[in-house]
Every structure is written in C-alpha cells, then in structure tokens.
Write a protein that binds this DNA or RNA. Structure first.
Lengths: 215, 215
DNA sequence: GATTTTACTGACCTTCGGGTCAGTAAGAAA
DNA sequence: TTTCTTACTGACCCGAAGGTCAGTAAAATC
C-alpha cells in the first residue's frame, strides 16, 4: 500500500511540476550514466529514479543522447566549478604549493565525483567531441598552466631545477591519474593504499630516485 | 561477380576448415572488440570479417561473452609474452635498466596493441572479474615486481636513494599510463608530443624537480 | 558412384530497450 | 460545477542484435 511514498524521500509532492522536472531527470540521468555509461543506461530506470514514467522524459528531452549531453554538461560544469578559487593564492614554498595542489587533485579526481565523470568521458568521449574539448580546457589545460606558473616561480626563487619537466608538467600529476585508473579497474580485487602511494608520489616528484644528480 | 574473393585476401581457400576457424574467429573478434568494446561489438560483423556466417561462431563459442573472454585471453598472453624476454638480462646501470624498461612500456602500452586491450578492460572490466584479475597479475603485478628488483639492486650498488618509492614503484611508470589515457581522450584534439613527454618523464623520475635534496 | 558424416549457412526466433501516443487526471479558468 | 488546458502515464511499437536450428553441401568413407 501507499505505493507513491516508499521509493522517493518526499511525500505529498504535487504531481504536476513542470519547472522541477528537467533538473530531476538530469540528476537521475547523471547517476545512471555514472553507473552504467551510455549504452547500458536504461531510461526506465532513470524514470523510476526520478519518480516519473518514461514518457515524461520525452516531454523534456528529445532523445537518450540529448539527455546524456545535458547530464554531462551539467556535471562537467558543476564538478569543475568547485575547485576554482582554491589554488589562487601563491603563498608558501614551491614544495608547499605543489603538495597542496596534489592533495586537492587527489581529493577531487580520485576520491570524489570527478572520477565518475572522467570514466564516462574516457569511455564514451568519441561521441562527444565538444564535451571532450571543453573538459580538456577545464582540467588539463588549466592544470598545466597553473603548474607551469608554480614551477616558473620556483625557478626564480631558486627552489626548482631547470629541466624538461617545466614544459611538460603533466608528468608531475600523472601518478594521481594512475591511482584513479588503477582503482577503476582493480579497486575490488587489488586496491592501492592511498597514504603510501601519495607519499611515494610526493617523494619521487621532489627528489627522483637517484642518489647523485650528475649524469 | 566473384563475391567470395573480394573481401578476404585468400582465394581458393577450402570451405570447411574446422581447425583454423577458432583462431580466425578470435582474431576477427579482437579487431571488433578493439574498435567497439563489448556492447557495441556486433557478431554479424565479426562473422563477416572472419569470412563465415554468424551461426558458425556458435559452433566454436558458447556465447558472445565466451568469445570475448577467449579474445581477451589470447590478446593478453600474446602481448605480454613478447615483452617477456626483453627485460630478462639485468646488465647495465640502474639508469639504463629503467630507461630500457620505460621504452619498452611506452612501445607496447602506449603506441602498440596493448592500449586497445587496456581501454576495453578499463571500460567494461566490471563484468569480467576473472579477466581483470589475471590481467592485473600479468601486467601490474609482474611490472611492480620487476621494478622492485631493479631498484633494490640499485640501492645495493649505491645508485638509488632509499625512499618510499621503493615500495610503491608504480609511481615511476605512472606517466606512461597518463600518456596512454591522455591520448585515448584527446588524441584527435590535443595530442601530446611523445619525445618531449618521454624526456620529461625520465628527468623527473631520476632527479625530481627540486634543486636541493634537503627537507 | 552411393552413402554417411558434419562444417557451415542464413532465415528465423526472442529479448531488450529506445521511442510514441492515445488516454487520464490534476489544476486553472469560467 | 463545468469546461478547458496540459503534465503525465504506460501500454504499445519496432528496430537491433544475440542466439537457434532445419537444411545444405563439402568432404570422408565405403
């Protein structure tokens, strides 16, 4: 009995809510696409999650793909918007700045919701060149620029070696990507210990593995 | 006219070839799964590529998934088998060994056929825990062990610092994974220059970014 | 050449899921 | 209360693709 109230948290919500529907559908879509990607995502399930019937989706979105685009776009902007201002102040040693940047990156990209987005785009990016492109500029592009600034400042202050890394700073954050990828594939069977990995990452990034610095 | 000969290279091949069929089907399967992943892979297309009809596939494989498993398994073993012996001799400085290992890894994993396999498993691995598991031991496990050996030997010879990296050597090869992932997503729009990336990778791995080695 | 075996075919079956639309009822207007 | 508008429903449609199997013909056996 009381079929309406037991699968959604809200009770007594009105049945006709034109304004709220699109956002609710997009939200349900994000969760479904995160779990299953585009192909395995199921519109009946999305509808059920959103507390509506499948037909209603088509009142607001032209097709599954249109809903997917809307979901991705909203997700990209919301996830990326968050980590905007956090790194803006350039106080501290280069070592501190880089450490803070990495912590931030692991937090968002490895543990947080950005990972699901990353996975979707890695999987289904071919069909979304425009999304891929804006994702690139919001993440890789921006991150690389920020890193270059930090490193250049470090060189000026006499803290940082001049090296090819200055032009390709992605190698510095690569282990974080590795960690995310590893957990995507092996989390259930062979999880990585975050603390140890992070420590090793920091250590290699700052000092390398060799004892001597001569060629 | 002559419908039989124009899509397959062989002409005059006998029509009943029980022994060769499985390998041919697996081969066609690999190519199809590489291009489309599991879900979008199409058995009619695989059959056409193998020069047979769809029904024939089911003479040799129980299901699409069984064919997928066979294809993955053959692919993994063949790719891994190749790079087996190449690293077996431990001659040279640690620097030389690590450089050689990385070159090998980039060659196979980034440019070569291993990338497609990696992508499929990353994308669709959830449904194949056993494949994922064996893939892990064949690649990550084996690679980590090899790295640890090289590093331990380096420490003994006084070439390598003692550091947390010794226990988590994956951070050393992480940039190669990053490179592969980057190209998967952005190759068409924002390709990375391999030579520069590789140089930066090597440089960071050996020396880190800091000028001083004190804390 | 006649008979038997079996690799192989392709039309067909079935399921799944995206997409449709005639019908329903909630809420506004009168 | 009656009428009208429209948000919403869910049974249905249909194409796509995994899977089946009676039939065919190539080769082996006699």
């Amino acid at each position: 009995m009381n079929k309406e109230a037991d699968d959604q948290t809200d009770v007594d919500k009105p049945r006709r809510r034109k304004d709220e529907r699109p956002a609710e559908i997009v939200s349900a879509g994000i969760s479904e696409f995160e779990k299953h990607g585009f192909y395995r995502a199921n519109l009946n399930r999305i509808a059920k999650t959103a507390g509506i019937s499948k037909g209603t989706i088509y009142l607001y979105f032209e097709s599954k793909e249109a809903l997917f685009l809307a979901a991705i776009e909203q997700h990209v902007t919301s996830v990326m918007g968050e980590s905007e201002a956090e790194m803006s102040d350039g106080e501290g040693t280069t070592r501190q700045l880089l450490t803070r940047l990495l912590q931030n990156m692991y937090a968002r990209f490895v543990h947080g919701e950005a990972q699901a987005l990353f996975r979707i785009l890695l999987t289904e990016g071919d069909r979304l060149p425009n999304v891929i492109s804006s994702y690139h500029s919001m993440t890789v592009q921006r991150g690389a620029t920020l890193l270059k600034q930090i490193l250049a400042r470090g060189v000026k202050r006499g803290e940082v070696r001049s090296s090819p890394v200055l032009d390709t700073p992605q190698v510095l954050i690569a282990p974080a990507v590795y960690f995310a990828v590893h957990n995507m594939m092996f989390k259930s069977t062979q999880p990585l210990d975050f603390e140890r990995f992070f420590e090793a990452h920091i250590d290699m990034m700052f000092h390398g593995v060799l004892l001597t610095n001569d060629m």
